[in-house]
Each structure stands twice: as structure tokens, then as C-alpha cells.
Design a binder for these strands. Structure first.
Lengths: 206, 206
DNA sequence: CGAAAAATGGACCCGCAAGTCCAAAGCGCT
DNA sequence: AGCGCTTTGGACTTGCGGGTCCATTTTTCG
């Protein structure tokens, strides 16, 4: 992660105490966004929850709300993958794949009806280079993890070696994304489960 | 008693002229939402584009922006399925399935970086009964169309009869949703294509 | 035709939330 | 100590945009 961020790219002087405050703000904002959504979250909400002042908010995020939300997006993006560990990093047997499947389902079931990242993205616009960079990297890493799992299964002969691992990983990932999207919109988990199950079964068949 | 404040308020006296105006407003608002997103679209934008006045907006949509956006959501929801016709309704051979696949890809490629429905939903909040009803019905109908196609293919022996058509349709639909989501976020179409191709291949294998 | 209802135009209000500003602490340093 | 920096607090401004209101025009219909 490059510490320098923001469109202007102005370098910021660091300070241990200031860094801690900045962190507190990001985490508080993230929690707020998780609970109320990005559109509904106001700087004053963040200020109240984190016990900070308007001055601090703009001190650490000179470009205002957008810059803060981008930081929150990065923060949440990190969570998405870590929440799937250690299962995601050890897709080395079919039981392991099913454990991962369960983990994903449990995670999004627990998350409920709010998707922080989706909410975030619609607030700051998908065209924004910063926003696109965050999502792009998340997708890339996620897909790489899955593809790595597939390749391992190919290496031990459990998956057809002729299969394009990246393509299969892309399809499976799309299924997860869509399953989550459907769940958020309708409240039903069945699409996510179907996508995961059918996707994994598709790998298994040889 | 019987104040018109009822949310359900399905009953409204409409003259032909009024109906036309209402329609113009919805279509103009839909276009605006498609271009700028739901959050960024203001009533004044709609007013300007449709050549109407504030009074008219609130005359036809007494509950304000939310009611208008809900109408737009219904309008756009309709488009999603009709844009896939006639292919979606005639999934009766493998070439027909591929035609449909191409149609979906082309549609979302053309749509570009904005997803009206997604944008709409994040504005009105997914919890809203009205919003949920719109998306729920869209998903249900879409999935039904796909499942019907699968069942037909089973009936002519082109798909394994043991397959659960609804489950497979749910997985495929999830893949499409996710593929679109990834495309919106990253600009890459490959996930959508992979989801469709892998999904259809999965049906084909027996 | 004439009254009632609907359609229209647009000025006005008002609250909210982003963003500004500056004064006052802290804190590290020689 | 005293200087310069980061950090902090919070009052204040501002603009935007949703929503209200009413006066006027047009349509409907007996």
C-alpha cells in the first residue's frame, strides 16, 4: 500500500499521535458506513462517534468527505479478504473448498443488508480513478487467490488440467459477487449458495 | 379519515394529458439517472430536462423524490428484461443460448459504467419495501425465464434431466449480476463473459 | 356556457451537512 | 525557557436541493 494517497498527491507530515487519530477516524467512519450506508453517513456522525472535531477531520482529510470515504473503502477492501482467511489461502482439498464456501456464506449472512463497498462506490462514483483502483485491486487479488486454489487442485489431479484456472476463477468470483448482490437486494441467500455450489461442482467434474 | 397520505395510494385521478406528463417525467428522470446516477440527480435537473415545473413534480409524485425514483426503478426494471428479448424467451437450442449470451454482453457493454438500478437502490435503501419489491420481482422473473430455458433443453435431452433447473438458473443469474458488477467497478468485461460461458458450458456437460 | 377539478408555473422557505477559519492547546527541540 | 510545528476545538458561513404554497391557466363535464 502506498501511504501517499489522494488526487492531489500532497505529501503529509506524519506524527505518531496524529496517525492514531487518523486511524480512529477511519475506523469510526467505517463502522458508521457499515451501519447506515455511505450516503447517509455525515461528517458530523463521524465526528460524534470518534470524539473528534471538524477541524481534525479536515486536517487529516483535506479533500473532505470524498477523501475520507476513499480511505474507508481501502480499509473495508482489506477486510473482505482477511475475513475469508485462513480458508481462502488453503484451498487444497475439497473439504477445504467447502469450508471456504461456508465461510463466505456465513460472512455475508452476518453482514446483513448493507454492503459497505457497494455503498461507498455509488457515493464516490465508479469513474473516479481512486475508487476504481481500490475495487480493481480487490478483484484482482481475490481472483488470484481462487485461481491459485484451482491450480493447486489441478496439480494434485483433482481438477482437469485443461481447465483455464483464471477463467474459472473469474466466473466463480462473478457468481459470488452476484449472489451477494441478489442477497442485498432481496434478502435471499439461495443465489449465493447456488453460485458457490454450482461453481465448485463445475470444477469437480472431470 | 381516508387522507391521501397512504403510501399505497394507488388511486389517483389522471387525465390523458396528465398521464403523458407523468410519463415524460419518469422517462426524463430515468435518462438523468442513467447519465449521472441517482444520488447526483436533483429534482431541478429533472425539471429542466423535462420542461416541467416543481409543482408538477410534486403533483404527480406527492411523496417527492423517493416516489419518483421508485417509479424510475420500475421503469428501468422493465427495460432490463425487454432488452434481452426476444432471445431470452427462446432459449431452445445451443445457438440460441449463445445469441442470448451475446445480447447480454452487448447490452451491458453499451450501457457503460452506470447501472441505474444499482444506483437507484443505494439511494432508496434496500430495506424499503417498495424497492425490495421491484428488485425481487425482477430477479424472480429473470430467473424464471432462464429456468424455463433450461427445462426446455432438458425436455429435448440436451441437458441432464437430473439437474435442478432452478438452482442452475439461480447460479447463472448470480454470475451475470456479479459479472456486471465487476464490469461497473473495474471496466473489464471478462468476468461477465466468463460467468456466462462457464455457466452455459456447465449446462452442456452431461 | 359555467363551475369544479386538474394541470401548470414559479417564487419562496428551510434545514442540513459540507466546508472555512482562527484561536488555543500540546509537544518536541536546542 | 521559548520558538515552531502539529493537533485540537468549535463557532460560523454557505450553498444546495427537497419540499411548500398559491396564483393562474387549461381541461372536463353537466
Amino acid at each position: 500500500m502506498s501511504p501517499k494517497s489522494g488526487i492531489a498527491g500532497t505529501e503529509r507530515p506524519l506524527t505518531p499521535k496524529g496517525l492514531a487519530t487518523r486511524q480512529r477516524i477511519v475506523e469510526g467512519a467505517a463502522a458508521e458506513v457499515r451501519e447506515r450506508g455511505a450516503v447517509a453517513t455525515t461528517l458530523d456522525d463521524v465526528r460524534a462517534r470518534t470524539g473528534t472535531s471538524k477541524g481534525q477531520l479536515f486536517h487529516y482529510f483535506p479533500d473532505g468527505k470524498d477523501e475520507l470515504l476513499l480511505a474507508v473503502a481501502r480499509h473495508e477492501s482489506e477486510r473482505v479478504l482477511t475475513d475469508q482467511q485462513p480458508q481462502l489461502g488453503h484451498l487444497t482439498s475439497w473439504p477445504a473448498w467447502l469450508d471456504w464456501r461456508d465461510r463466505v456464506v456465513a460472512r455475508y449472512l452476518a453482514q446483513g443488508t448493507e454492503c459497505p463497498l457497494n455503498s461507498l462506490m455509488s457515493q464516490l462514483g465508479r469513474g473516479t480513478p481512486g475508487a476504481r483502483a481500490v475495487t480493481s485491486e480487490l478483484i484482482t487479488r481475490w481472483q488470484w487467490e481462487i485461481a491459485t486454489g484451482i491450480r493447486y487442485m489441478q496439480s494434485i489431479g483433482e481438477v482437469d488440467a485443461a481447465l483455464d484456472a483464471d477463467r474459472s476463477a473469474a466466473a466463480l468470483l462473478a457468481g459470488i459477487q452476484g449472489g451477494v448482490a441478489v442477497m442485498l437486494a432481496t434478502g435471499r441467500i439461495e443465489h449465493l449458495e447456488a453460485a458457490l455450489d454450482v461453481g465448485i461442482e463445475g470444477l469437480r467434474r472431470r
